[in-house]
Simulated scan of single mutants.
Amino acid sequence: MEEIRVRTSARSEMVEITDQVQALLDRGVREGAVVVQSLHTTAAITINENADPFVVDDVLRKLDGLIPRDEPFYKHAEGNSDSHLKTSFFGPSVTVIVSGGRLVLGTWQGIYLCEFDGPRERRVAVQLLRAG
């Protein structure tokens, strides 16, 4: 297992980590898969478009509309219930196929750490699974 550290700069943001994950593959994994997992309950991992930055803006704005920060029915004492809910929408991890030493992603796809309770330093576990 390898670990990537990501410094976030806002309460909610999506930070592309595709290049950091690919760099770990460059150590010799040619065929298999990689699991990318957030080690936090208020930060998720997802795959989404990495060509148009407005996609990330749209996702974050819609999430804020669906799951506002302040709701009178939240009971969690830390004041970040919305962050936990948003993280649950995406989940803690993604699995990506590796072929020819490269992540198998579509033309416009990238791997993102989704920060919902920042800014913070986040840890992302990366498990390389070799085929055969």
Rank of each mutant, 00 (worst) to 15 (best):
2 E>G: 03
4 I>Q: 04
6 V>H: 06
6 V>Y: 11
6 V>S: 07
8 T>K: 13
9 S>T: 03
13 E>L: 00
14 M>L: 12
16 E>G: 12
16 E>M: 10
17 I>M: 08
18 T>P: 15
18 T>K: 15
19 D>Q: 14
19 D>K: 15
20 Q>H: 09
20 Q>K: 15
22 Q>A: 00
22 Q>H: 01
23 A>R: 06
24 L>S: 09
24 L>R: 12
25 L>V: 02
25 L>S: 01
26 D>M: 11
26 D>T: 13
28 G>C: 00
28 G>P: 00
30 R>I: 00
31 E>G: 02
31 E>T: 02
32 G>V: 01
32 G>D: 03
33 A>K: 08
37 Q>A: 08
40 H>R: 05
40 H>F: 13
42 T>M: 10
44 A>C: 07
48 N>L: 05
49 E>S: 12
53 P>W: 11
54 F>Q: 13
55 V>M: 10
55 V>A: 09
55 V>C: 04
55 V>T: 07
56 V>Y: 01
56 V>W: 00
57 D>H: 13
59 V>F: 05
60 L>T: 13
60 L>Y: 02
60 L>C: 06
61 R>H: 12
63 L>S: 03
65 G>C: 11
66 L>D: 12
66 L>I: 04
66 L>S: 00
67 I>C: 03
67 I>Y: 07
70 D>C: 12
70 D>R: 13
71 E>A: 10
72 P>Y: 10
72 P>N: 13
72 P>F: 11
72 P>D: 15
72 P>E: 13
73 F>Q: 06
74 Y>L: 07
75 K>Q: 09
76 H>D: 07
79 G>Q: 02
80 N>T: 01
82 D>R: 04
83 S>I: 02
83 S>E: 06
84 H>T: 01
85 L>F: 13
86 K>V: 05
88 S>T: 13
88 S>H: 12
89 F>C: 09
89 F>K: 07
91 G>Y: 04
91 G>L: 07
95 T>S: 14
96 V>D: 03
100 G>D: 08
101 G>S: 11
101 G>W: 12
103 L>S: 01
104 V>W: 04
107 T>C: 09
108 W>Y: 13
108 W>K: 06
109 Q>A: 05
111 I>A: 15
112 Y>V: 08
113 L>H: 04
116 F>I: 08
116 F>C: 11
117 D>V: 05
119 P>L: 09
120 R>I: 14
120 R>D: 14
121 E>Y: 07
123 R>M: 04
123 R>T: 03
124 V>P: 07
124 V>T: 06
125 A>R: 15
125 A>W: 14
125 A>Y: 11
126 V>H: 15
126 V>A: 15
126 V>T: 14
127 Q>L: 06
128 L>R: 12
130 R>Q: 05
131 A>L: 02
132 G>V: 12
132 G>M: 11
